[in-house]
């Protein structure tokens, strides 16, 4: 890992191209993600920011026609190499989706799902601990500690999304990818999640895709602006929002297009 100012580089994307069938969705993306920082990816719909996010834990593998080229280096290891173990990779890089997607199981089983498949707990006691700490970190413990064995789908939208965050952190990932995690939530739930993101960055590197410029400005330290499959500009959030280099970035941020 190289030094870059104060922060270490966690993920480094080099010349990433993505194709859906014949259509190219991302063009030559080069982006470094810093450790223990929140990086926001902004841009109009269809600009490729979610596609880029899904490259980072190889979720694009699920889509048959999707092809990723280029290097994505995490911990000095190119995840697009043939030798990369996707299961290990996704253990290290968790993901939270746009729509809360708890499994149709109990709260407890939702959290214990990851640790079970990765064999992280030797006993029931250890598992209980993992579940408790994960829920506490996701600021959900107090609300649900008496109903751990009720279905996760019975929670409110905001609670469900925090449950999904708790599920993601239960395997102690180094990086958490968030794909518009608040777009289905009301302002209060959004505020709770944003607070949580701020808390989580102490232990995890966070990359968040968002449509809300205000949210990007509130939660992130670094921002990347995507447009039509290209990374137009990236840098510290302050700079991007106050003094962007590129006119397109300025237009988008000031709401002139997009």
């Amino acid at each position: 890992m190289r030094k870059n100012g104060v922060n270490m580089i966690k993920i480094s994307a080099k010349n990433v191209d993505v194709f859906y069938g014949k259509k190219q969705a991302l063009f030559n993306i080069n982006l470094d993600i810093e450790e223990n920082q929140v990086t926001a990816l902004i841009g109009p719909s269809g600009c490729g920011k979610s596609t880029f996010l899904r490259c980072l834990n190889r979720m694009n593998d699920v889509i048959d026609i999707c092809k990723v080229q280029g290097e994505i280096v995490i911990n000095d290891f190119n995840i697009n190499d043939k030798g990369c173990d996707v299961v290990r990779l996704r253990e290290k890089i968790g993901m939270v989706f746009q729509k809360p997607n708890p499994f149709p199981k109990t709260l407890y089983e939702n959290i214990s799902y990851g640790p079970t498949i990765h064999g992280m707990a030797q006993s029931k006691q250890e598992m209980d601990e993992i579940v408790e700490t994960s829920l506490k970190k996701a600021a959900l413990w107090e609300e649900v500690k008496d109903r751990l064995h009720e279905p996760g789908t019975g929670l409110s939208g905001g609670q469900q999304q925090r449950l999904c965050i708790a599920r993601a952190i239960s395997v102690q990932p180094e990086v958490i990818l968030m794909d518009e995690p608040c777009s289905a939530l009301d302002p209060i739930a959004t505020a709770q999640i944003e607070e949580l993101i701020d808390e989580l960055k102490k232990e995890h590197t966070i990359i968040i895709v968002t449509h809300s410029m205000a949210q990007a400005a509130r939660v992130s330290q670094r921002t990347g602006f995507f447009h039509l499959g290209e990374l137009i500009e990236h840098g510290s959030t302050d700079k991007i929002f106050k003094n962007p280099d590129n006119i397109k970035t300025q237009d988008y941020i000031t709401g002139r297009f997009g």
Binding site: R90, G94, N101, V171
Partner: peptide, 22 residues
């Protein structure tokens, strides 16, 4: 829903684990 599959894959579950457990 595909979102359940995605959720499970994103946790690092394999295909057969996803089918069996989710």
């Amino acid at each position: 829903p595909q979102s359940l599959r995605d959720g499970s894959y994103a946790m690092g579950a394999t295909k057969s684990e996803t089918i069996k457990k989710v």
